[in-house]
């Protein structure tokens, strides 16, 4: 064996578990979007997002020893859960009518660009946590990094009335 040959472990390539997993999800989402279309792909990702949203909601409520979260606590949880997975969400507005969140960094990083179906993960996680605690949520993804906006703006309507009725978005309800 020649000593001139480099070792694979010394190769300067950007590969680790996080990048591998994000790339895997990007390619899976892309394949789904191409094969069944963006709407159906979003539906499949919604199923996963619903389950993850329920799990995260229960984790926070158990850890905080609360039966239900208040509106302020819901907003706090939404920002915190994204922080824990490397998102940079922040509260723009929070009142009886709606919670508005901004975001400068997607947890999927650049792997989300051009994959709008992946945003259904955020819609479902935010929608399920909000609805389970406050009874109702309508989530509108006004701007998304996935669509090339450079930032996200997510509006969560808290009551099915007024502006919420006229706005396009996905509706969520608490468990029956």
């Amino acid at each position: 064996m020649s000593t001139d040959l480099g070792r694979a472990s010394d190769a300067a390539i950007p590969l680790d578990r996080d990048l591998f997993m994000r790339t895997l999800i990007r390619e899976l989402a892309g394949t789904l979007e191409n094969v069944v279309g963006i709407e159906d792909a979003a539906g499949f990702i919604s199923v996963v997002g619903t389950t993850i949203g329920e799990s995260i909601d229960q984790s926070y409520r158990k850890a905080l020893k609360l039966e239900k979260l208040s509106r302020a606590q819901v907003a706090d949880v939404l920002v915190d859960l994204k922080r824990r997975i490397n998102g940079k969400f922040y509260i723009i507005e929070e009142n009886d009518e709606r919670i508005v969140l901004g975001n400068d960094a997607c947890p999927f990083g650049e792997k989300v660009i051009g994959r709008p179906s992946m945003c259904m993960m955020t819609s479902n996680v935010f929608g399920n946590i909000t609805a389970e605690n406050l009874g109702y949520a309508k989530v509108k993804l006004e701007k998304t990094i996935a669509a090339g906006h450079g930032e996200c703006r997510v509006v969560i309507y808290l009551q099915p009335m007024g502006e919420a009725v006229e706005t396009d978005g996905r509706e969520y309800y608490s468990s029956p």
Partner: peptide, 13 residues
Amino acid sequence: LHQCAKTRGPLPG
């Protein structure tokens, strides 16, 4: 059904 009852968006199954 429990999951479907929580959203108006169609969920595949």
